[in-house]
Design a protein around this nucleic acid. Structure first.
Lengths: 229, 229
DNA sequence: ATTTGCTGTTAATTATTGTTAAAACATGAT
DNA sequence: ATCATGTTTTAACAATAATTAACAGCAAAT
């Protein structure tokens, strides 16, 4: 099962745009090409993309403005800017907005592809479970279901449910882990009682992690929980 | 508490190496410079680094071999390759090994710095990725949903809604944040009651920020609110 | 000036989450 | 099968967050 990644590309130069789209589609990315920032924004709001590539210089709405608006709705989606070589200042500004990468024109399409792959490997790919997570001073071993305090060199055994929940939180670190999702994956059924059971486990995990200031499980009201670190 | 990031740099050209190390240290990165792959590997095994920068062409052990060995021990650590412009094939190989980025010589040190920052923002994610806004004496951490008063060194926890709204205001600092836009992004639906709810949260935010004269949330009649500072 | 519609603020209501403890359930050892 | 132990769920109540209601104040339009 290999889901196709969806790319939102905005580029006002029609020739370059079409060329890029064709290339990206050939490489297996579903690509939507929009000619300016406004249309790009509309497209973004109407479809779920995995990555954005915005030309900086565009009519109606430039790439940075578009990126800001996109960031308001989605803080995580990777954004790559296409920028003219001379504009060093653009690059600085781009990173401030939260660019994931930038690429200066002219560029080879291969180069762009490498960047895309590298980013997707990190962002989407980071959603893949790992064997162990570092939570500040604690190391969480998902296999052994252990939380090791590397400072005092002590260890706490986690129960199955504790471990499963913490693992889900880790996989979604710094993102919201939706209640329903967690309930369906761990408790199978998402009724009222299971939701309360989950709350109980959140309390337990918070106690386990309270020795590390930089790590916290915060509640996102009505949505779920977020492991921040 | 700002932990210094540790960088492992291998580069056989002594002049370039020293220059880079000097620059990176000036930018606040603790940098160890090793002249070849073998010494680089020894250093890696003896210390905990946050990021690696490997020259591809090195005596004794080239950058790719070194990277492969490092990857066996640590699958996550970001690796940036320094490679000669001509060697397009190098780049392909580099990404196969799992490079996070590559940079072709000659390059500007600023450019390298941007790459480093971008990668650290993503991977370590911890310190830099947390979009934090400075509001006069207050520092607003969007991830942890906290408002830190840096003068009294006290902290106030924000609720999810408070945090979301303040974040939108910050993104649009000194510009009008339109009511409808905020309602649609935070409350999803922009009916009368949600609009009143938003007003209540504006009051709450104003209270939170009243300790700082230079920051204010002003109303733009019929349009929305503007965070001025 | 008066009306209408927006905004400011506080308090009451409702919904969600935090926490603790007891009950129910599971598991392996005797 | 029974017991001892640890895990998970349920229950109960406390605390917090979000919405709604109510009324006061202000801004723009007629």
């Amino acid at each position: 099962m290999k889901t196709e990644y969806k790319i939102l590309l905005t580029e006002d130069d029609e020739n370059l745009g079409m060329l890029l789209r064709e290339y990206l589609e050939a490489k297996g990315y579903e690509t939507d090409l929009l000619p300016d920032g406004e249309e790009g924004y509309n497209a973004f709001m109407n479809k779920k993309y995995d990555l954005c590539i915005f030309d900086v210089m565009m009519p109606k709405k430039d790439g940075f403005t578009l990126a800001k608006e996109v960031r308001m709705v989605n803080t995580d989606i990777p954004i790559i800017f296409l920028t003219a070589k001379s504009m060093k200042e653009d690059i600085v500004q781009g990173f401030k907005i939260g660019a994931d990468d930038y690429i200066t024109k002219p560029f080879s399409m291969k180069e762009l592809l490498f960047r895309i792959e590298a980013i997707l490997r990190r962002t989407v790919g980071s959603n893949v479970a790992q064997a162990a997570y570092q939570l500040g001073r604690y190391k969480f071993d998902t296999q052994k279901q252990q939380l090791i305090d590397e400072q005092s060199d002590s260890m706490v055994k986690l129960t199955t449910k504790e471990s499963e929940l913490l693992k889900l939180l880790c996989i979604n670190a710094n993102k919201v882990l939706e209640r329903n999702f967690a309930l369906k994956t761990i408790w199978v059924d998402d009724n009222y009682f299971n939701a309360r059971s989950m709350d109980v486990y959140i309390t337990k995990l918070r106690k386990h992690l309270k020795g590390e200031e930089s790590v916290a499980i915060i509640n996102v009201h009505g949505k779920g929980y977020k492991l921040v670190m």
